[in-house]
Amino acid sequence: MLRYTLTRLLSLAVSLAVASVVIFMAVEILPGDPATLMLGVNAQEDTLAALREQLGLNGSLWSRYLSWVGGMLTGDFGTSYTYRTPVAEMVGERLWISLPLAIYALTLSTLIAFPAGIWAASKRGSAADVGVMGVTQLGVAIPNFWFAMLMVVVFAINLRWFSAGGFPGWDKGFWLSMKSLTLPAIALALPQASILARVMRSSLLDTLSEDFVRTARAKGLSKRQALWRHALRNALIPVLTIIGLQFSFLLAGGIIIENVFYLPGLGRMIFQAVSARDLIVVESVVMLLVFAVIAVNFLVEISYALVDPRLRHGR
């Protein structure tokens, strides 16, 4: 298990290094000069040069890459070109909305998907199964922003249970903040839960037809017991993979939902930074998201090993 973990950690470090180079190079080749953008097209040449110097845009490619990576490693993400505030501070603020939202949505999605998938698989071919499959088909098909707007109409405008958007800030109270994240979380969770439930069901059905489930039945376990004690844990590997992918998506890909609900999250920030050519913000946020994705993958791989002893033993 230790060796497995160390190998995974090593591969995590290598992936991060490669990703940092790719991101840096991609931003480098983007057209547009941040200094011109900040000062406007009519700025004087010597002012521009001074600003470039100040922003550190004049050094060699190599030295700029090193100072960028070195800065991130010490928690210094640089200063935003447009807002003139430290990127770390901006990201920190936004992350406190996007991360809880992603976790909230993922929790909801898992809480819905597991029972639904297990229920459908255990009653294969029954009305329950057909029902779950039908509803999840719909859940996958409905665009989540449309569903979000529908919820705003019903729960915010008509019933007035929730506010239609915005975020009060965590200092205004935990429950109030959670309440304002509820509709966005549901909107994000709906398609995810549908996909996850379908994966859960099909993975479990595959496992239920395995020989060892028959062996378990021959020992005297009922169908239900065989499912819970033998099939379920074996069926988890594909489900964990999907959960990992979904978390990364929820963290970075909530931009449409953030826009629908006026949430100042990471997705909106990166969108604004790209349009303002605020390269230092783009680089840092993308790097942060890459880190999140790779870290989640690492956790998923560790959880594989916890589920399956064959991986623990380094095979």
Binding site: E210, D211, F212, R214, T215, A216, R217, A218, K219, G220, L221, S222, H230, R233, N234, V307, D308, P309, R310
Partner: peptide
């Protein structure tokens, strides 16, 4: 269920897959 495994035991053809791997 009370009989299976208790009064009657069964051995299968494919030992590689007959046991729960985890």
């Amino acid at each position: 269920c009370a009989l299976r495994g208790n009064k009657v035991g069964m051995v299968f053809q494919e030992p590689m897959t007959a046991l729960n791997p985890i």
